[in-house]
Write a protein that binds this DNA or RNA. Structure first.
Lengths: 113, 113
DNA sequence: GATATGTGTCAGGTTTCTTTGACAGGTCCG
DNA sequence: CGGACCTGTCAAAGAAACCTGACACATATC
């Protein structure tokens, strides 16, 4: 049930969820999939802004968007939630941190002055 | 075991953990409490910077710091981890989102201004 | 006194994130 | 055609986060 993300993945997830608008977006999508323009109206924010937020959430893998054609022929981009599940504990964070860029231990090549 | 934070609390936590340096700080503190200057040396970052990061972590309730006096009389600020535990799922995020500021619908009640 | 340790803070520059308004395209309907 | 929807992108302003160097204060040791 628990996902074990790399440091980079976890950073994306935390960065994506650590924003009031994006938290509300998740809340809104929990009630069902929705398309961008309608979601923007319901949340009371502009489309360009929502578009950016959705992109961030999608980049983190928390939502997925599919461009569909309504019966009338208009294209609608529907977004829905991913059943993500992360546990945040000192251990899980520390584990993820190990996979980060580099800790640069004493391995500092340069002739230490 | 699971903590049920308000939207504001969760925002602080996510904002605190969503940073490579702070993730590494958590990882470093998992091996035991430590004081600022030493921690800065081990992580290879400046004290002012670490100080800021620790403040952010402490504000989120993920670490606690105590100013102690070493035997020699110097003051040392020791930080240690809090046994935090958060679950990140669509439901938990949506629940937290409900407690956020306000969605400012068209019904702006200002009777009790 | 000079040095090395520890504490903290502050101003500033840099970077990143957030937000908005304007623009491009498309389909459908009266 | 004009309007009402839908999609997307861009540039630029504004706000917030991040980082660094310098400063001030302590104590202990040489």
């Amino acid at each position: 049930m628990q996902e074990v993300p790399t440091g980079d993945e976890l950073l994306k997830v935390l960065g994506a969820l650590g924003n009031p608008h994006r938290m509300r977006i998740v809340g809104a999508l929990l009630e069902g999939r929705n398309y961008v323009s309608r979601l923007a109206r319901e949340l009371g924010i502009g489309r360009p802004l929502l578009h950016m937020h959705l992109q961030r959430l999608e980049a983190a893998g928390l939502v997925v968007g599919t461009l569909e054609l309504s019966e009338s022929g208009k294209s609608m981009k529907y977004f829905e939630l991913t059943p993500f599940c992360f546990a945040l504990t000192p251990q899980s964070v520390a584990t993820a941190a190990l996979t980060l860029p580099e800790e640069e231990r004493t391995t500092v090549k340069e002739s230490a002055k």
